[in-house]
Design a protein around this nucleic acid. Sequence first.
DNA 1: ATTCAGTAGATTGGATCCAGAAAATGGCAC
DNA 2: GTGCCATTTTCTGGATCCAATCTACTGAAT
Lengths: 220, 220
Amino acid sequence: MKLKSVDISKTASASSIVFEALRKAIIEGELTEGEPLRQDEIARLFNTSRIPVREAISRLEEQGLVKTQRYKGAVVSGLSVGEAEEIFDFRALIEPEVIRRAVPLMSPDILDAARASCAAFSESSDPMRWGDLNRDFHSALYSASGLQYHLDVIDNAMDRVDRYLRAQLVLSNGMERANDEHLMILEACAAGDASLAAERTRLHITSARQSLIQNIHSLR
Amino acid sequence: MKLKSVDISKTASASSIVFEALRKAIIEGELTEGEPLRQDEIARLFNTSRIPVREAISRLEEQGLVKTQRYKGAVVSGLSVGEAEEIFDFRALIEPEVIRRAVPLMSPDILDAARASCAAFSESSDPMRWGDLNRDFHSALYSASGLQYHLDVIDNAMDRVDRYLRAQLVLSNGMERANDEHLMILEACAAGDASLAAERTRLHITSARQSLIQNIHSLR
DNA sequence: ATTCAGTAGATTGGATCCAGAAAATGGCAC
DNA sequence: GTGCCATTTTCTGGATCCAATCTACTGAAT
């Protein structure tokens, strides 16, 4: 008997559907900073009651994506430029190390997947997709490390600065430079040079940070 | 009229009380790995309904402290030795950098606070308190950095390995060595030598990691 | 004895309902 | 018209209730 096995226990609950949807909406900037999340409204939107919505919101708060005040509700939590810088610094610290440890473990499959994401990134003309493809590329490489905790932490950091990352890609020549840097990182990985890949990853992140700071005026 | 002002908006909600209590119980090992969390039971324990309990559990899951399966409930999520090692590696990467950036900003007040925690740590004969005092000491120093995101991430990492940390302190001469290392770190901080403080912090963490691996048998 | 369907109890996920707090509204004095 | 207080409305936090699912047990067929 050949059946595609589906882990039935992982069918999504209402609360996780709401959680994922809100998370996506927040990191992509559809819900903007300070915007209040009305439980009723969201519940109606998803044809559910407020209970799953509240669970979703409390999870979002744990992730730092919203802030709640008792009896006042939740608002999308913004990120000051200073906070964004801090998170870029954080990424510049951890991601190079993850890729350093990933390089020796990179299978051809993984390199191919990364190449594919990279190509899709460079070819896409839709700025809205750049953010996703950019993350796909990095995730593909990092995942080879097998460092689950590190990967989770990186994901959270990326979530938080996602809006800034997207903004940074569309302005000036952010997209072109990111693509160049991706190719350089890929090259180092393919060559098996872990230290070089790490250093290039570090530069990739710090250059995004720099570009963010310089263009801060056009973002606000 | 002199009244001690209390921010009434921060009076804890039922769900956060439950959350904090469960978090503490888990990281201190009162609730052991694999132990199921029965919503009813917990609700009765706190004289509340299951709603706040469920919110607390979903927050705990977001923090990685429990794992839930749909319709089956939540169990305290354990940590394999490999995962604990990964988190120690993570700490060894990030905490030195935080202290490096904290040193130039350390006021005498903060140094005093750290000295106090350190002294309390060395004098305490209650193994159950060592874990707390150890964290107090490090937190005091790190907090000077003002890097809120880094601090949050470190807290989460500490939560996850708290049980291993405590275990590591009680066995062999873990406590003595930790105390020596604390004094060395403190000395470097007081002298304003950021790089030295960073390096000593790194060694402090990797030595705990080593000790954990060597004594792994006696822990299981 | 073993295996399997069927059932009852336990447990979770979600809906509805209620109380308390915050915001909005509407007089009312000035 | 403006500022202030009371009332109404809106909204959140929590309690209770219901449905869906899991689990343990029973008992019958083989």
